[in-house]
Write a protein that binds this DNA or RNA. Structure first.
Lengths: 199, 199
DNA sequence: TTAATGAATGAACGTTTGTTCATTTCCTGT
DNA sequence: ACAGGAAATGAACAAACGTTCATTCATTAA
């Protein structure tokens, strides 16, 4: 009984690594099977199709992203605090799950049909949360921004860029990177940022 | 004699559109041929391989990017002015060539062999220019940033994000978007930004 | 021990892929 | 008008693709 979950998880892990490495379209079902030492046909006992594996990975990732970046906002009311918490949670999740983030960003195009609509809707909800924080801060006078919707996307793009080069980086620690990006994100909305170590 | 260049350009245009739409791996040579009303075999009179088309597109794009974002810096010496000029040039190029930018960003993985190395080197040089501007501003005291190398990538990621959603946007004019991003980029390095219209 | 159930096999399927090539068509310089 | 060379054709190739399937294997419940 534990066997099923084990193999299914092996498939997930192998697919995640390969999709992130070469891209969904460049990975064959046979590659995933070979990576876990199995035959291709057997994977269909666990996933209905190659597409289903991709959807599964994206879904799991979005759930974890919400837990990291959105859940902590419940305790905060000040827009600047909320933005900082969101950014920190988002970055933490990005750094902890680089492959998932990379896939979520690069393989949106590879989604088809029903799975596509569902993932898109979940993504929109995530972005809407950030947009709400920015709108509050703008109304509040705390943020100096032209448009909350554009700014939300600008920030997410900036933070999303971490994963593009994080693998390749050398000396910077996750904490350094986080500080750097938190500063950039908060300053980008006109907030004067002081590092936690100097408060 | 004009015929060769004409067909070659048709191939470029069709490939650009299709690569941006579906991704390099999801586009067949036959699709490109069909898009210009030709047979697949004929394309090999103009490009040695499918890969060569991709390399050609990326190369052309990088040359235009340099002309737009780097060339104007020659006239400027103040770091803040140079950064603003770079960002404006970069954005202008992004908005004018959304498909090329999208391809350059998404299809780096699809590059192979010699073409890959060459494109990577050209990209690095482009990024190094921005890095230099940031370093100067930091040394100058004009910029409040933690690390020029990280900051350069953060800004490029942020600006690169424009093309991800630019197609989908409605009401904002290119000028609005540019203002928005110039402000975000300059503020992200700690510069107080005032719009040209209010100077 | 036996029966039953789900996992794994590995060959096979029909497509689609990038590329090649002998052939034909078209244009151009003389 | 004609020769020469590039451009275009369209069939063909081998390889790789996602998926299916009859079969075997392993595990567990009775």
């Amino acid at each position: 009984m534990a066997k099923e979950h084990q193999t299914k998880q092996f498939i997930r892990n192998a697919a995640r690594k390969l999709f992130a490495e070469r891209g969904y379209n460049a990975v064959a079902i046979r590659d995933i099977a070979a990576a876990i030492g199995k035959q291709p046909g057997g994977l269909y006992n666990h996933f209905g199709s190659k597409q289903a594996i991709l959807v599964d990975l994206m879904q799991e990732n979005l759930e974890r992203a919400e837990a990291a970046a959105i859940a902590p906002l419940a305790d905060l009311s000040d827009p600047a605090d909320r933005l900082e918490a969101f950014v920190r949670g988002h970055i933490a999740h990005n750094i902890a799950n680089p492959d998932d983030i990379f896939i979520a960003y690069m393989e949106l195009r590879s989604l088809e049909g029903a799975g596509s609509k569902q993932i898109m809707a979940q993504r929109d909800a995530y972005e809407a949360t950030l947009r709400g924080v920015l709108r509050d801060g703008q109304a509040n006078g705390a943020f100096v921004i032209a448009d909350p919707a554009i700014q939300a996307r600008a920030i997410l793009s900036m933070l999303g860029g971490i994963t593009v080069w994080y693998r390749q980086t050398g000396p910077q620690s996750p904490a350094d990177i986080t500080e750097c990006y938190v500063q950039a994100a908060l300053q980008s909305v006109g907030v004067t940022y002081t590092a936690p170590s100097e408060r």
